[in-house]
Computed example of a mutant assay.
Amino acid sequence: MGCAVSGPNVNPDSAVSEERRSPSLEGAPDLKTEPECGGSEEPKEPFLLSEAQKGLIRASWEVLHKDIARVGVIVFIRLFETHPECKDAFFLFRDVDDLQQLKMSKELQAHGLRVMSFIEKSVGRLDQMDKLEHLAFELGRSHCRYQAPPKYYEYVGAQFIQAVQPILKEDWTPEVEKAWENLFKYLAATMRRGFYAEEKMKASQPLLSRKAGAEATPNRI
């Protein structure tokens, strides 16, 4: 993300709070045009997962969870290979050009685990839409504070899907892939809404401060 995807001291067997340091999670393969700064809020992304798809995600996650630390590293190495510009969002990694060296980085391992923990928390909230939306929305807001552009959110989901196919082997089916794509599409869109809501709030703060200052200054005639 490091990036701001989840909190430090990650326990891979439990949900972990979002980290407040820098950027990551991206969502689905559908790229969308980003609105102008301070523009109107994006509409909510519909949650398109059926009960059957939720079951496929949970079943596949049970397998992936056993090796989430390795999956996290693979996802980010692939991300930096396919989208090297993403490294600029990671102050810990931006000056490291050797990807083999990055694979051994404890910071990258920790960050990958944080991202996997975010995915784990999302899987655990598939039947709690309010909590799932809040989780992704707040993560988008934190990414705004750390200047991680929404276009990056789209990349992680695609790299996750590529990374886990060899692990699941014959259990990876077109139906499983579609279910994960739908989940990442929803997460990325909700994070974008959080990003732009935070951006709009930050843009309005200087104006509010000026108004408050003007009201506090007595008129002198």
Rank of each mutant, 00 (worst) to 15 (best):
E107R: 14
G157S: 00
K87F: 01
E170K: 00
I167V: 08
M116Y: 04
L99W: 04
V176R: 10
L102W: 10
P166K: 01
L108E: 07
E133W: 09
L126K: 01
A163D: 09
S105Y: 01
L92H: 09
I119W: 02
H134M: 12
Y155P: 01
G140Y: 02
I161H: 05
A89C: 11
S122T: 14
R141E: 06
Y155E: 08
L92F: 12
M104L: 14
Q162I: 09
R141I: 01
L102K: 07
K106L: 14
L108N: 07
P150V: 07
G124H: 05
Q109N: 12
A89S: 14
F160E: 05
Y152L: 06
E107V: 15
P174S: 10
W172F: 15
Y153I: 05
K178R: 13
M116E: 06
E133L: 10
V156D: 01
P166A: 08
W172I: 01
K106Y: 15
M129N: 15
D171V: 09
G124K: 02
K131P: 02
K131T: 01
L102T: 12
A158D: 08
T173Y: 00
M104G: 13
H143S: 02
D97Y: 09
L135A: 10
E138C: 06
Q165W: 03
D171N: 15
D171T: 13
F90V: 13
A158F: 00
L113T: 03
K121C: 12
V123D: 05
S105K: 01
F91I: 11
A158N: 02
A89M: 11
Q165T: 09
L139N: 12
E154Q: 11
S117A: 15
S142D: 08
T173N: 06
E107W: 14
F137G: 01
H134Y: 09
Y155T: 05
Y153Q: 06
M116L: 07
K106R: 14
I119T: 09
K87Y: 07
L139W: 03
G112Y: 04
G157V: 01
G112H: 00
G112T: 04
S105I: 08
S117W: 06
W172N: 07
E133N: 05
K121Y: 10
P166L: 08
I167M: 03
E175Y: 11
V176A: 13
P166G: 04
P166W: 00
E133R: 09
E175V: 12
Q147F: 06
D95N: 15
Q162E: 15
Y155N: 00
A163I: 12
L132F: 04
Q109T: 06
S105G: 09
K131C: 06
V115C: 11
R145K: 05
Q100W: 13
P174K: 13
D97C: 10
I119M: 07
K103E: 13
I119V: 13
A136G: 04
Q165D: 03
S117Y: 05
G124D: 10
D171H: 13
Y152I: 03
P149I: 03
F93S: 00
Q128H: 11
F160L: 03
E154P: 03
C144Y: 05
K103Y: 12
E175R: 13
F93V: 04
P166Q: 03
K169I: 13
Y155W: 02
F90G: 02
D127Q: 10
M104I: 09
P150Y: 07
S142G: 08
R114H: 14
F93M: 12
S117M: 08
H143Q: 06
L108G: 04
E138S: 07
D95V: 08
L126S: 00
E154Y: 06
D127H: 13
